[in-house]
Design a protein around this nucleic acid. Structure first.
Lengths: 146, 146
DNA sequence: ATCTTTGTACCAAGTATTTGATACAAAGAT
DNA sequence: ATCTTTGTATCAAATACTTGGTACAAAGAT
């Protein structure tokens, strides 16, 4: 677990997608602040038991999304979350300064659900399912349903 | 064009997905009201130049989403739109609830993450990914099983 | 009871996607 | 100048997905 990334072979979503989603989510949630350097494709690949090209693909797409930036020898670095550029310095204590309150809030909220679920004895899968359903309801869009 | 559905071969999204999406959208938009009967798999398939099984697959997934319902001889009928209800958090269908107070708390927490994520502009899938990672961090998770 | 309509299950074939491995290019360190 | 680290390109193989077709099951109509 290099920066908190893991892949679940056997999931319907392919590894390179899982990596992309996780990195992307971590950035958006403030878990990875701008300037942070991501692990090298080879090392992350080794950690996850994948080929370098697989990780590279994830990185590449992330760069195209403008989330990260890659210097040849300097590795890949987080540029910043997609949109918001809240100028205020919200000292959230979660490792670093940087992004606005929203990101940290997401991180905190995630922690909170997990704790709540744990307290309620709700299995992980159930929590995931619950969130999935709630998201669908909120959007009014039916699909999903893996 | 039986009810306003059409497929575009050559689109990256497969036909069965297009059908599912369109029917789903029509229902959500009110173009297909509850009680309306959908064309038979064979006739729609014929109209679109596809195999019955393809349309059947779309219908099947729509039923699993609870949007439509199928009676053997009576064809497939629209049940209704996702049915917005506020913070209904329980009842994922897997039984196992019954915890009581804690369950509501989980529901509230779920709503909270969703709002936070929305505020941060975090896409649904990324939020899911984030939660998944966080869960794995907290517990040595067994094979994820999506 | 039989027929007809409608969805379902299953299986093989075609197609597309994903991966892994190797060779290559950039860029800083020595 | 050379080395080492890091991302990139590419291509064949493996894998998964989607489709079509056929046979089957349910359920109302006749």
């Amino acid at each position: 677990m290099t920066v908190g990334i893991s892949v679940d072979l056997g999931s319907p979503t392919p590894p390179y997608e899982q990596i992309r989603l996780q990195v992307s989510a971590l950035i958006a949630a403030g878990g990875l602040t701008p300037g942070t350097r991501l692990p090298a494709v080879r090392s992350l690949a080794a950690d996850l038991g994948l080929a370098a090209g697989t990780v590279a693909r994830a990185y590449k797409e992330l760069e195209q999304s403008g989330l990260i930036e890659t210097r040849r020898r300097n590795g890949t670095v987080v540029v910043g979350p997609p949109a918001y550029s809240a100028p205020d310095a919200g000292a959230t204590g979660s490792g670093a300064s940087g992004s606005g309150a929203s990101a940290a809030e997401v991180g905190a909220a995630v922690e909170h659900v997990i704790q709540a679920a744990a307290k309620a004895g709700l299995p992980d899968e159930e929590l995931l399912a619950l969130l999935r359903v709630a998201l669908q309801k909120r959007r009014g869009l039916p699909p999903g349903v893996d």
